[in-house]
């Protein structure tokens, strides 16, 4: 398999890099405090993880329904065609996120202090 020597080295390096990045993010993770939702790069709202709630993000033709329950957040329903945001599942740790590319919606968990208000809408 001498022919594939450098190919093998390359693939090994990629796997190693992926493992290191994953390990780093696993070790540095911490419980999140609230979910920050941005639409189109602009802040849409912030919702604490310790309060159960249901938010209709966007509201109009392009929407994502965000549910917060038992310290976890997930997208339950969405207008996007691929529904990838629903498949991305539940988030609870600092830095985890659910991203809906068609609706340009990002919901990310932020750690540290809770926001001053329960919800800040635009």
């Amino acid at each position: 398999m001498k022919r594939y020597k450098y190919d093998t080295i390359f693939v090994m390096a990629v796997i190693l890099a992926a493992a290191l990045i994953w390990l780093f993010s696993y070790l540095t993770r911490s419980e999140g405090a609230y979910v920050r939702v941005t639409v189109n790069g602009e802040l849409y709202g912030e919702y604490p993880l310790n309060t159960d709630t249901k938010v209709n993000i966007g509201g109009g033709d392009s929407y994502n329904i965000l549910i917060i329950q038992g310290g976890e957040a997930w997208i339950d329903e969405a207008s996007c065609p691929d529904k990838l945001c629903i498949k991305q599942g539940k988030i609870r740790y600092d830095g985890q996120s659910v991203i809906c590319l068609p609706n340009k919606m990002v919901a990310e968990v932020i750690g540290g202090k809770k926001p001053e208000f329960d919800a800040v809408v635009k």
Partner: peptide
């Protein structure tokens, strides 16, 4: 485009 660094978590 989304102005978030958090996507790095998908990188692995």
């Amino acid at each position: 485009l989304l102005e978030t660094k958090r996507l790095i978590y998908y990188l692995p």
